[in-house]
Simulated scan of single mutants.
Amino acid sequence: MSELIYPKQNELAKLIESNIPGDGVNETAIPSLFFMRQSTKIGPSYGNYKPSLCLVVQGAKDVWLAEELFKYSPTDYLVASVDLPVTAQVTEASADVPYLGFKLEFTPEQILDVLSDSEISINPKENAKRGMFVSHMEPTLLDAVLRLARLLDNPQDIPVLAPLFKKEILYRLLQGMNGNTLKQIAIEGSSTYRIRNVIEHIMNNFDRSYRIEELAEKANMSVSSLHRHFKEVTAMSPIQLQKQLRLQEARRLLLIESTDATDVAFQVGYESPSQFSREYSRMFGFPPREDIKRLRRQYEKTANE
Rank of each mutant, 00 (worst) to 15 (best):
L141C: 10
Y6I: 13
A93W: 04
L112M: 09
I120D: 08
S190W: 09
E188F: 06
V79C: 10
L255M: 14
F284W: 04
A88G: 12
D62T: 13
S190C: 06
L151K: 06
F230C: 02
T91W: 11
E213C: 00
A88P: 00
I122Q: 13
L69W: 04
N19I: 01
A93M: 08
Y270Q: 06
Q244W: 02
L69H: 09
G47V: 02
R37C: 08
S39C: 06
P44Y: 08
I212N: 05
P288F: 05
E138C: 01
P155K: 15
E217Q: 08
A66I: 00
F286K: 12
K41V: 15
Y270I: 06
Y270G: 07
K71W: 10
E138K: 15
A66C: 08
Y171E: 10
Q240W: 01
V63L: 14
L141K: 12
V198E: 03
Q240V: 05
P7Y: 04
K293S: 11
Y193G: 02
C54V: 14
F286W: 09
L254P: 02
Q298E: 15
L254T: 02
G59L: 09
D117G: 13
L164D: 03
M132T: 15
T181Y: 06
Q58M: 09
R37V: 07
T259V: 10
S258N: 14
S274Q: 14
L152P: 02
L84S: 09
F34M: 13
L141R: 10
S281A: 15
A261Y: 09
G269W: 03
L15N: 10
M132V: 15
S272Y: 06
R208C: 11
S135W: 05
E92H: 10
S73R: 14
Q248F: 13
S135L: 08
S45E: 12
I199E: 03
L161N: 02
L241W: 04
D263Q: 12
P139S: 10
L247W: 05
F266C: 04
G43V: 00
E279M: 03
R251N: 03
Y280D: 07
P139L: 11
N205L: 08
E290F: 08
M36Q: 14
T75H: 11
V134Q: 11
R278G: 06
S116A: 11
D62Y: 11
E27V: 12
Q298H: 13
